[in-house]
Amino acid sequence: MTTTSRRAIVLGVGGLALALVPPIAAALNQPFYVDLFRRMMIFAIAAVSLDLILGYGGMVSFGHAAYLGIGAYAVGIPAFHGVDNGFVQWGLAILASGLAALVIGAISIRTSGVYFIMITLAFAQMLYYLGIGLETYGGDNGMRLTRRSLFGPVDLTNPAVFYYVVLAILLLFLVAGGRVVDSRFGMVIRAARSNEPRARAIGFSPFRYKLAAFVIAGSMGGLAGALLANQTEYLTPDFMHWTRSGEIMFMVILGGMGTLFGPVVGAIVLLLLEDVLSALTAHWQIVLGPILITVVLFARRGLYGLLAGAPTRDG
């Protein structure tokens, strides 16, 4: 089976399964599930965007939560000033986070290895402190989002409508992501990840392609942030906390980095795990920590890799 047709099947089956969540939740009278799965999909979008640079581009960005935060504030700040138009807010989220990624990327992509990890982390931390410093917008307490983004007749206050909007965005990103990684552009960033000196020797200057990928991933992360602010109807600098960056990264690894659907699986499994564990004990992180270590040490290819039995960087 070719990669393309396998992707189409996974996308169809997975999309259908996710589309059935709201009616099933309604039938079971458990509206909570709509909320939970929507949250999963929002983080899946963030994880897919990180995987574009982490899995395909080999850039270990430890500050991806920064874009989540920028996206959230891009919804919250206009809303605070009475601008509720969703096109404005979400457009701003994409633009502002893309711009931030452009600046952060321009400085950090010049470095490599552990420097890159630490710099992306430090930049995210810087934005986190900036968020705390925004006294007008609640400082470290953050602020309430008085109403969800307005999209004319599309009413995001309806849980199911909002759910399908998120699902549509996720599917769109997966289709687009699949195209991008196989395109000329995708081949360049994957080649630079695979063997950068060789990529340079055949005539590619990887910097600009990596930077472009970094900006794309940042913008996608920003949109995920805009969705997250609408999901929680609340936003705080904690959206940008470095543990959040670690979580998104873990989703990618857990699901299988360098695969298209791995990050989605990772996001769903991690949030499910957190949900189950936190119901059992308030100290669930003491269980999650060792699970994380075990996954890193023994299940390097991630769940999607194990499930699909496919080599990584393939489907």
């Binding site: 270990v60 430890f62 990890i117 543990t243 670690g246 990264m249 873990f250 690894i253 992180q285 003491i286 999650l288 920590g289 060792p290 699970i291 994380l292 270590i293 890193v296 040490l297």
Partner: peptide, 10 residues
């Protein structure tokens, strides 16, 4: 990074 992140949580 990930494994030591797990250690921190622990």
């Amino acid at each position: 990074v990930l494994a030591t992140f797990g250690l921190i949580l622990f």
